[in-house]
Amino acid sequence: MNDSDPAIFAKICELLQAFNKKGVALEPDLEIMTGLEIDSVAVMDFVMEVEDHFDIDIPLNVLSETRSIQDLVKVVAERTMRAA
């Protein structure tokens, strides 16, 4: 993780809580869909919240390669850097 990653991780976890109905502990390597037992539409809805918060687009093609919270942190870090 680089300097900004822990902040991104914390924010993503905060946004994820609304979808974490089962109260699963959020670790970097937790797979979002299988770990939280949520369906593909819920994952896309969650990512929309992430997009809004960071003012970036995360195309669905990228999302299909993004499984864990850590993967998503990486995508957000990359895309926020690109947007800056």
Partner: peptide, 13 residues
């Protein structure tokens, strides 16, 4: 259809 196109896919509210 979007997946089949291999285009960049952006979902809006």
């Amino acid at each position: 259809g979007c997946t089949l196109s291999r285009a960049q896919l952006v979902r809006f509210r």
